[in-house]
Amino acid sequence: MKQTNYTKHFIILSVFTVILFFVNVSLGSVSIPFKDIFTSLTGGIPAKESWETIIINFRLPKAITAVLVGSGLSICGLLMQTLFRNPLAGPFVLGISSGASLGVALLILGSSIFGGFLLSASAASLSLPIAASLGAFLVLSAVIIAANKVRNTMSILIIGLMFGSLTSAIISVLAYFSEAAQIQQYLFWSFGSLGNLSWNEISIFAIIYFIGITGTIVVIKPLNSFLLGENYAKSLGINIKKSRNIILLITSLLTGVITAFSGPIAFVGLAVPHIARMLFTTSNHKILLPATAIIGAIVLLICDSIAQLPTSEFTLPINAITSLFGAPVVIWLLIRKKKIFI
């Protein structure tokens, strides 16, 4: 579609992302001079050998995870908001993240009840994302079936919230019958963490992420036509059922894998698409998708940098930071703009 040129926006945001990426890598409990960080990242050897390990095996994977998680969740939020034509939709509100949590809870907590065979160490890296994706898909399908019965989008959101509390209830029951060690493992997972991913896990993450993103590019056209409502989309020759299923599949896959590797991270999925719409003042997904992805990455890189509490050895749970950061932003947006769009 013909429209204003957004190249400048994208260049500025990309430069900003790169800067934040370096800032993120250079922050941590051990302070490393910027020069040595640069040499490690470009393949050279820094002044101390331990610095290289810290950067290559801890900080770099974490920063990459932040980029993948931030952009992935934001795209999921955008897809949900357009699909439901509701500005309040997002992986969290619709209970999809809770579904992923349920999958993980069944895996971690269920292993003590149903026997430990589910979570053998070798399969753990794959079984966690699979369980989370299945859980996400389960809840999302339930929401969709309900959505087909009730046309009112408000009811759909409430149904999503209900599914969310339903899954939390099941998790509570599971937790009640589980052993302390498992509960602790689950609790730490639910705080959310971008670190602790091995390069192996990151490559699995990245592969699924790129499958999801590729799928998203394919549905740009139907996504745009959804902006007119379902009946107009149908009259434009869009196969509603097929597009909707693809969108749901992408969302559950992305939310599932993200939640599995980094825990349930709140607010990013809901807030970032709105920030993107405000900055770019468009609803065209050809612009909005990359914009949302970049801003999502930026937001999570910032949140993670804050969570590391620079120069201290503590790290706050990332989930708390995204909410502390996200909630005021959304409130401010609503007060300032008064009108919210999809």
Binding site: M1, K2, V218, I220, K221, S283, N284, K286, F341, I342
Partner: peptide, 25 residues
């Protein structure tokens, strides 16, 4: 009613071409 979005008039009219455009519109 159309869902609330930031579509421009041109974009809205251009949607009419969707049945003819390629996969990326």
């Amino acid at each position: 009613r159309l869902p609330e979005s930031q579509l421009t008039v041109f974009e809205l009219v251009a949607f009419g071409r969707q049945p003819y455009t390629n996969w990326i519109d």
